[in-house]
């Protein structure tokens, strides 16, 4: 799925990275805990989060998150946007909540980075 498709599904506003909306996103993850993102995300994932600060961008860069969608109409300030631009991480914003935005993308078939359901199935 491309970031542009994700942007349409979630009625997103684009804060930066307009030129990179054609990038492919393979996995999705949603968390406000950056340590969980570092522990459970995969390279190339999309991050949905309600945490809007510079640590969100640093975490994304370190964990190789391809793009970030801020939920519930949260707007990053200019320092956050500047840091994201420098790191080439597109920032988008959706009016949906974290739960709703995750649900919408999950229904379209975007795979989770954690895959807990397949782990449950494997263990019976």
């Amino acid at each position: 799925m491309t970031l542009n498709e994700i942007s349409k599904f979630l009625s997103c506003e684009v804060f930066c990275g307009e030129d990179e909306l054609n990038m492919e996103i393979e996995f999705g993850c949603a968390s406000d805990l950056m340590s969980d993102v570092l522990a459970f995300s995969r390279s190339g994932a999309l991050l949905l989060t309600g945490l809007v600060n510079t640590q969100t961008i640093h975490t994304a860069f370190i964990a190789e998150i391809n793009a970030i969608v801020f939920v519930r109409r949260k707007i990053p300030d200019k320092d956050i946007v500047a840091l994201a631009r420098e790191k080439h991480i597109p920032l988008l914003g959706t009016p949906y909540s974290l739960y709703e935005a995750s649900g919408i993308l999950y229904k379209t078939g975007l795979i989770s980075t954690m895959e807990c359901i397949s782990a449950i199935n494997e263990n019976g």
């Binding site: 406000d32 805990l33 950056m34 340590s35 969980d36 570092l38 522990a39 600060n53 969100t56 975490t59």
Partner: peptide, 16 residues
């Protein structure tokens, strides 16, 4: 915690 850290995952994440 407001910075998204302090969830008790730091050292375990280093070990991982």
């Amino acid at each position: 915690r407001e910075m998204g850290f302090g969830a008790g995952m730091g050292l375990p994440n280093i070990k991982r």
